[in-house]
Design a protein around this nucleic acid. Sequence first.
DNA 1: GTCTATACATAGATAGAC
DNA 2: GTCTATCTATGTATAGAC
Lengths: 216, 216
Amino acid sequence: MTETVQDSRHRLIEAMADLLWERGYAATSPRDVMSAAGVGQGSLYHHFSGKHELAVEAMRANVATAMADNPEPTGDGPALVDIEDRLLRPRPGTRGCRVGRMTQDPKVVEDPEMLGIVSDAFDTMTARWRRLVTAAVQQGELPDDLDAQQLADTLSAVIQGGYVLSRARGSQEPMDSAVHGMVALLQAASTHQARPDGPVAPDIHPQDIHPHEEQS
Amino acid sequence: MTETVQDSRHRLIEAMADLLWERGYAATSPRDVMSAAGVGQGSLYHHFSGKHELAVEAMRANVATAMADNPEPTGDGPALVDIEDRLLRPRPGTRGCRVGRMTQDPKVVEDPEMLGIVSDAFDTMTARWRRLVTAAVQQGELPDDLDAQQLADTLSAVIQGGYVLSRARGSQEPMDSAVHGMVALLQAASTHQARPDGPVAPDIHPQDIHPHEEQS
DNA sequence: GTCTATACATAGATAGAC
DNA sequence: GTCTATCTATGTATAGAC
């Protein structure tokens, strides 16, 4: 709006977003945020009603970042390859997931507004997985008796669980191991045992294709 | 040791164990624990040096509970069935995992003693999964090019991620969906497409069978 | 808009009576 | 062994100067 575009406000949101990721909501104090943002007491309570309102803004920012890191698939190319690429995308195991982390904070889960942000984010992410699974089934790359919603939840869970394992061991290794195990299992389940290259003819019944129903 | 066997001490550990599960370490205050245990200030600091020492004891108790809920497999019967049974065991999705929950608490992860307890627990759990996978491969129920350690991490991750999804949505459903998706994928990957009943002859190379190397 | 000063509750632990 | 004060530091927010 103004010329300087409320620099302190942005700094506070960025700082809170990082601290939410690193320590969670309950363990982050207003003082921590102001210190990290390099602003005084007054700025926080001028721009926000308090810690809660600032955290809501910061949580939305973290969700936006997570979304951008795992965007809606383009849909050209074989879907199974898209699934594998998505699984193998680099992820900072020991730092944890910006969004999934929030689910362990009782203060977040008890708050409808904050929980809603997290819940919607997972709905969106799972929907992206589900469309990829549906496409892979339609392209004949996965057995057609697989339930797309279930497998989408499984794929989301592998990622989220990978973060938990990596934090428990203080190492990136379990995250990488878990996603590679999932890739191997998908390939084992694939009806096309070892497709060398080239696209696949969508030779199976084109039934359940719902390309856009993000969120709920 | 004594006759009354330190009732307050046990009550404190039980109360702390529940609160660690429900709220985590950082968000649980000594007062909360004493109140839940129904004891006064003095008891806690008589039996323990402070919150940290009590939490360590309580964390060990939670690990023991989690272990007992998912015991070392017996090893008779088809391993793939054991894997599926273990996946489908009832789990309180919205409450989260007593052990995995700890990994999101920076205070826990930064503390070598507490992190060690959690880390060892995951090592043990993953080792149980790994032996089941190895057995299933040997019995010819899963393709022998699967990496047992990787798939074990995947299985652990599905459980831990299921908890995260269930807490995000405030519903048991995603946990159940995720594990069912994993079961379906395992069946799709199974080299025995639909074995009606009866045991399986272990007709494949009996090579890599390491029955006992719990922990590290 | 941003700062410093202040206020009040809670976290975590200690002191000392019984 | 267990209790009730008590203590210091921090969390969270307000007041008011600039």
